[in-house]
Design a protein around this nucleic acid. Structure first.
Length: 822
RNA sequence: GCCCGGGUGGCGGAAUCGGCAGACGCGGCGGACUCAAAAUCCGCAGUCCUUCGGGGCGUGAGGGUUCAAGUCCCUCCCCGGGCACCA
């Protein structure tokens, strides 16, 4: 007799899976393909609980689908570019590569210690020269297709990170999502990917994806599609004459409510609008200049979080815009709340039907016209709901949708403007002024301009002999050897791009490289991609709900259109699961909070299987988890009980002809197979574990009963239990299965319940009076409605609750329930 | 403000299609084993009342639909998340 000792069996099986290549998968594997992927981690050192949780789910699916007969692709790699390595280099002088490689070693081995299995032959690192080659290759394809471009733009500059950030990396309060510093606006030449050309597809293609609804909602909000119209207004003076004598001076506005145009009483322009100079009258110049200067001096945070009164947030320009619908001039204002980066940077204001316009109009004493009939009893200010239009010329009497269409038609016929869709989504700013990233493979030639590095010269690698100093400048900028090159076109002197790519670029295609990781002619072969993609199950944290997923979707669509992946591959991840966070004492676990519990601690005490089981058992996988030491002990207790049961150390085991109890034990085993399989399919791991615990409790009672357990029946039950737990607690199941059968549990087929064994001899039928349970009887599962009613009426409990009264009505749902209504 | 989730014992949670509320685990209590403890095994347990047969109440609050509601509908409260001058 030997006790359950995870410290012995876990290393044994981890080595076995690796040595046997159990989970290595070839691209010509005959089994039907299934691609399961956990978001590849940034290598920050030993695995933390979030990793364990993620990889426990992924590993369960890998093993479950393998036992189900699939050829499962389950790869792992490392998102190995990023700021921490560079910051460490500045601090210690250690090269980011050696720093990163050491952390990859650490993380890889701690992932192995939780028993998660992968085809390690496919491992990729974003900082590997081969990976860099193909990231750059893709960049050049995008550049060639016009999907990558360079422009000067007001960008988000983080003084803490000393780099620009994508819009997505700036939080709503105007701070950097990494460092928390207040982000500044700077005008710099930067590289962009043209994500906006896919805005509609990124939005529409979300619909059929089996993703958590809230992730889809976040993506839709981020894309922020809004339909409306754009139209031009002539800028005039108060009398309607061309402003400043310039008849070509027009202001273009975007609106989602062209139906309310008759109610426009003023118009508002962003302070950064290029026409500000020309639409300002000499008398208003002083105030306008002061206002623009004030807005400029404000940081993005101040501007966004201002609670200044509205009369201070806008200024009259002295010019007017001619409302094409009424031919009436309306005053043109500047206001800080109008954003230059959205639409045309100018809006028409309709205070009657827009609350913000109402507030601004009230503060500036501007007129308010109602163009939508208010319902009786309406007491509010701006009215944004539907209703018949009034004071609106040819739109009078129409409801909103009809009026919008009519207004746009009119604009188009008159030549003032047209239907227009706007998006909140912006192009992806991908250049970073950092060293530890994938270099952008272009050169600048005095005479030829911006040129791509020829494909044959890829990869462009950063030099090793660089000095890291806390100047905030990338060491590449002053590295003469790297900087100077020759122009691939004219052969003259040229300068290399020193910016590197956002690390989200690397993670936007790693799932494709996993399909064909050794390909040295292309980033991936189209056949390999066609075989595995899209990913059947993607698993990761909800913190990537917007950025990573949006970028990966953009890459997939772009690569599909460029012919690098199959034309019908439009989405990378058909099913997505986002796991909950781990909290300790109500707060998110993190190094900075100092409330970390480390997986290593538990692996060394109760073992990886107990740790995995706890993650599965503690609650629904999508919910946040409160860490609980006691809970993990309960899981360990269950495994120790299973160990003793499977080794025949519980109760008495005899050989005999099967009796009723033996049949019941076997029937329970078949019901368990059905239950656990169903629960796995619906991501209900906590109930699957509970069902296994319940089953083991029954087996204990069975084996410890006076009559003991029949060997054959107990074997059936225990073997099923080991097969069912094999994806959850793989070391323990593998060890016990080997002890009992000498074979590998993970090479067995997933068990199938015998339908004939599922129907019990009798079931409990509930008897209610007025919906309250008053009695229970054991009945045959196929009892007739008449028999069920007769049984109910014969019940003493029913008769006493009925008293002298008659049953007015009887609802029978045999064999589950009969409800007698007096 | 808008859009999603969610609110069930002392705690984590279960109840998959409107049909036994509280599975399973933790913690608690009792018993067995033991000189004793740990470990292990067995059992009890929503809450209140009880003549010990049982009965009342109970899934954030209030209303409704139904023979029957944690589950469906309406109003509201609270918690978590996302978005938020996007015209």
């Amino acid at each position: 007799m030997s006790d359950y000792d995870p410290q012995v069996i876990e290393p044994k099986w981890q080595e076995r899976w690796l040595a046997d290549g159990t989970y290595e998968i070839d691209n010509d594997d005959p089994r039907p393909p299934f691609y399961v992927l956990c978001m590849y981690p940034y290598p920050s050192g030993a695995a933390h609980m979030g990793h364990v949780r993620n990889y426990t789910f992924g590993d369960l699916i890998t093993r479950y689908r393998t036992m189900g007969g699939y050829g499962v692709l389950s790869p792992m790699g490392f998102d190995s570019f990023g700021l921490p390595a560079e910051n460490a280099a500045i601090k210690t002088g250690e090269h980011p590569r050696t720093f990163t490689d050491a952390r990859i070693e650490e993380l890889r081995s701690s992932i192995r210690r939780i028993g998660a299995v992968y085809d390690w032959r496919r491992e990729v690192h974003s900082h590997d020269p081969e990976y860099i080659r193909w990231t750059q290759w893709i960049f050049l394809k995008f550049l060639d297709a016009g999907l990558a471009y360079r422009k000067e733009a007001p960008v988000n500059w983080c003084p803490g990170c000393q780099t620009v950030l994508a819009n997505e990396q700036v939080l709503a309060d105007g701070t950097c999502e990494r460092s928390g510093d207040v982000v500044e606006k700077r005008d710099l030449e930067q590289w962009f990917f043209r994500t906006t050309v896919y805005a509609d597809q990124l939005l529409d293609d979300l619909d059929p994806l089996e993703w958590p609804e809230r992730v889809k909602v976040m993506q839709r909000n981020w894309i922020g599609r809004s339909e409306g119209a754009e139209f031009d207004m002539n800028v005039v003076d108060a009398d309607g004459r061309a402003f400043g004598g310039d008849p070509d001076l027009v202001l273009r506005v975007f609106t989602t409510r062209p139906d309310t145009s008759f109610g426009m009483t003023y118009t508002v322009v962003a302070p950064e609008h290029p026409l500000v100079e020309r639409i300002t009258s000499p008398e208003r110049r002083g105030e306008v200049d002061a206002f623009v200067a004030m807005v400029r001096s404000e940081s993005e945070v101040e501007r966004q979080s201002t609670d200044a009164p509205l009369d201070k947030r806008g200024v009259f320009t002295g010019s007017y815009a001619l409302n094409p619908f009424t031919n009436e001039p309306v005053p043109v204002y500047l206001a800080d709340y109008v954003l230059m980066g959205y639409g045309t940077g100018a809006v028409m204001a309709v205070p009657g039907e827009d609350q913000r316009d109402w507030d601004f109009a009230a503060a500036h004493g501007l007129p308010i016209i109602e163009t939508v009939q208010r319902p009786a009893g309406w007491t509010g200010e701006a009215y944004t709901d539907d209703g018949p239009h009034v004071n609106s010329g040819f739109l009078d009497g129409m409801t909103k949708d009809i009026a919008i269409a009519a207004a746009i038609d009119w604009l188009e016929v008159q030549g003032h403007g047209e239907r227009k869709v706007n998006y909140r989504l912006r192009d992806w700013l991908l250049s970073r002024q950092r060293f530890w990233g994938c270099p952008i493979p272009v050169v600048y030639c005095e005479s030829c301009g911006i040129l791509p590095v020829p494909e044959a010269d890829l990869p462009v690698l950063a030099p090793d002999e660089v000095e890291f100093r806390p100047t905030g400048e990338s060491p590449l900028r002053e590295h003469e050897g790297f900087l100077h090159t020759t122009c691939p076109s004219c052969g003259g002197p040229a300068r290399r791009e020193t910016d590197t790519m956002d690390t989200f670029v690397d993670s936007s295609w790693y799932f494709l490289r996993f399909c064909d990781p050794a390909n040295d002619e292309l980033p991936f072969g189209i056949d390999a991609v066609s075989r595995w993609m899209p990913v059947d199950q993607y698993i990761g944290g909800v913190e990537h709900a917007i950025l990573h997923l949006m970028y990966a979707r953009f890459f997939t669509k772009a690569l599909s259109d460029l012919g690098a992946v199959p034309a019908d591959l439009r989405e990378p991840f058909s099913r997505l699961f986002t796991q909950g966070m781990i909290r300790l004492g109500g707060a998110k676990m993190s190094k900075s909070r100092g409330n970390l519990v480390t997986p290593e601690h538990y692996i060394e005490s109760v073992g990886a299987d107990s740790l995995r089981l706890f993650h599965l058992f503690v609650g629904p996988p999508q919910d946040d988890v409160d860490w609980d030491d006691k809970g993990i002990e309960g899981c360990h207790r269950f495994l120790a009980r299973l160990w003793r049961m499977a080794r025949g150390e519980v109760g008495t085991i005899v050989d005999r002809e099967p009796d009723a109890a033996d049949g019941a034990a076997e029937a329970a085993a078949h019901r368990l197979v059905k239950k656990v399989t169903g629960d796995f399919e619906r991501w209900s791991y906590n109930t699957a574990v509970a069902a296994c615990m319940e089953n083991l409790n029954e087996l204990y009672r069975y084996a410890q009963s006076e009559a003991g357990a029949r060997r054959g029946s107990l074997d059936v039950a225990v073997d099923f239990l080991l097969l069912l737990t094999a994806p959850m607690v793989p070391h323990l199941s593998a060890e016990l299965w080997e002890q009992r059968h000498g074979t590998h549990v993970h090479e067995q087929s997933w068990p199938v319940a015998d339908e004939a064994m599922l129907s019990a001899e009798t079931v409990t039928m509930v008897i209610q009076v007025s919906g309250k349970v008053r009695d229970r009887v054991e009945v045959a599962p196929d009892i007739s409605e008449d028999d069920a009613v007769a049984l109910a009426m014969a019940s003493d409990a029913v008769r006493s609750h009925l008293g002298d009264g008659e049953a007015r009505r009887v609802v029978a749902r045999p064999p589950k329930l009969v409800n007698v209504v007096p």
